[in-house]
C-alpha cells in the first residue's frame, strides 16, 4: 500500500513537474530557466506589450472557435448519417471516419499541403481553418455517435406516429437527446485545434501563424522567459476551460437524471 502511494505520487510529480517548472521561472528576473534571481512580472508585461504575439493569440482563438463550431455542425450530421446507414455501409463509413484520427499528423499535414496547392488555395488563414475543421470532424462524430446509439429507436417511431416530419424529429427528438455528446465533441474539437502543431505547421504560409507554430519557432531559438509567461497564461486558460467543460457536462448529466 505504501509502495503504491509512493508510485502514484512519483507519477503525478513527473507529470506536473515540467509545467510548474515553466510557471516558476516565468517570474524569474534572471532571464534563464536555471537560476532564480528575483521575482518579477516583466515577462508578463513583455507578453502583453507584444502586439504580434497578441494577434497570433487572437488568430489561434478565432481558428479554434470557428473550426470547432463548423466541425461540430458537420460532425453531428455525419454521426446521424452513420446512424441511419445500412449495416454494411456503417462499417465502411466508420473506417473512413477514423482515418484522420489514426493517421500520424505529419501525413495529414503533408497530404493537406498537396491538396491545397493543387486546389489553388493560398496557404494562410483559409488553409489552416479548413485543415482544423477537417481533422476535428471525426472527433465530433465519435463523441456524438455513442449518444445516438444509446437513444431508443422507438422514440423516433413514436414521434413519426404522432405526425412529426423529418425536421421535427431532428430538432425536437434527436438533437435534444444528443446535446451532451455535441458539447463533448465541441470541446474536444476546441482542444484539438488549440493543441495542434504538426498539421498547422505544414499548411500555414509565411504571413500566418498560430500559437503552437510561434512557440516552436521561439523555442528553436533557445530559451526566452516570455514563452514561460505565455505558457502560464495558457495553463490558466486551460484550467478555466476544463472547469467550464466539467460544469457543463455535470449539469447536462444532472438534467438527464431528472427526466
Amino acid at each position: 500500500m505504501k509502495f503504491s502511494r509512493l508510485y502514484l505520487t512519483f507519477i503525478f510529480f513527473v507529470l506536473y513537474m515540467p509545467i510548474f517548472y515553466l510557471i516558476y521561472y516565468s517570474f524569474n528576473s534572471g532571464g534563464t530557466m536555471h537560476h532564480f534571481e528575483s521575482f518579477t512580472l516583466d515577462w508578463y508585461k513583455e507578453v502583453f506589450a507584444d502586439t504580434r504575439l497578441l494577434i497570433i493569440v487572437l488568430h489561434t482563438m478565432i481558428i479554434a472557435l470557428l473550426s470547432s463550431s463548423l466541425a461540430t455542425i458537420i460532425g453531428v450530421f455525419g454521426a446521424i448519417t452513420i446512424y441511419y446507414a445500412k449495416h454494411r455501409w456503417k462499417q465502411t463509413l466508420l473506417t473512413l471516419n477514423n482515418v484522420l484520427i489514426v493517421s500520424p499528423d505529419v501525413i495529414i499535414g503533408a497530404s493537406f499541403l498537396i491538396l491545397f496547392t493543387i486546389a489553388g488555395i493560398q496557404l494562410g488563414f483559409t488553409s489552416v481553418l479548413l485543415s482544423h475543421i477537417a481533422f476535428s470532424i471525426p472527433i465530433v462524430v465519435l463523441m456524438v455517435l455513442p449518444k445516438l446509439q444509446e437513444m431508443s429507436p422507438t422514440l423516433i417511431d413514436a414521434a413519426r406516429d404522432l405526425g412529426a416530419n423529418e425536421w421535427n424529429i431532428l430538432t425536437k427528438v434527436i438533437l435534444p437527446y444528443i446535446t451532451p455528446g455535441i458539447f463533448a465533441g465541441f470541446f474536444m474539437a476546441l482542444t484539438y485545434s488549440l493543441d495542434d502543431f504538426a498539421v498547422t505547421f505544414f499548411v500555414t504560409g509565411n504571413g500566418f501563424s498560430t500559437l503552437s507554430v510561434e512557440i516552436y519557432s521561439r523555442a528553436r531559438q533557445g530559451i526566452s522567459l516570455s514563452v514561460n509567461a505565455l505558457s502560464t497564461l495558457l495553463f490558466l486558460f486551460t484550467l478555466v476551460l476544463v472547469v467550464v467543460y466539467y460544469v457543463i457536462t455535470q449539469r447536462a448529466s444532472a438534467k438527464g437524471g431528472q427526466k
Binding site: L22, L194, D195, F197, S212, I215, A219, S231, T238, L241
Partner: peptide, 11 residues
C-alpha cells in the same frame, strides 16, 4: 491539454 510544444520547451 497543455500545449505539446510548451511541454517540450519545459524540458
Amino acid at each position: 491539454w497543455v500545449n505539446l510544444l510548451l511541454k517540450a520547451y519545459a524540458f
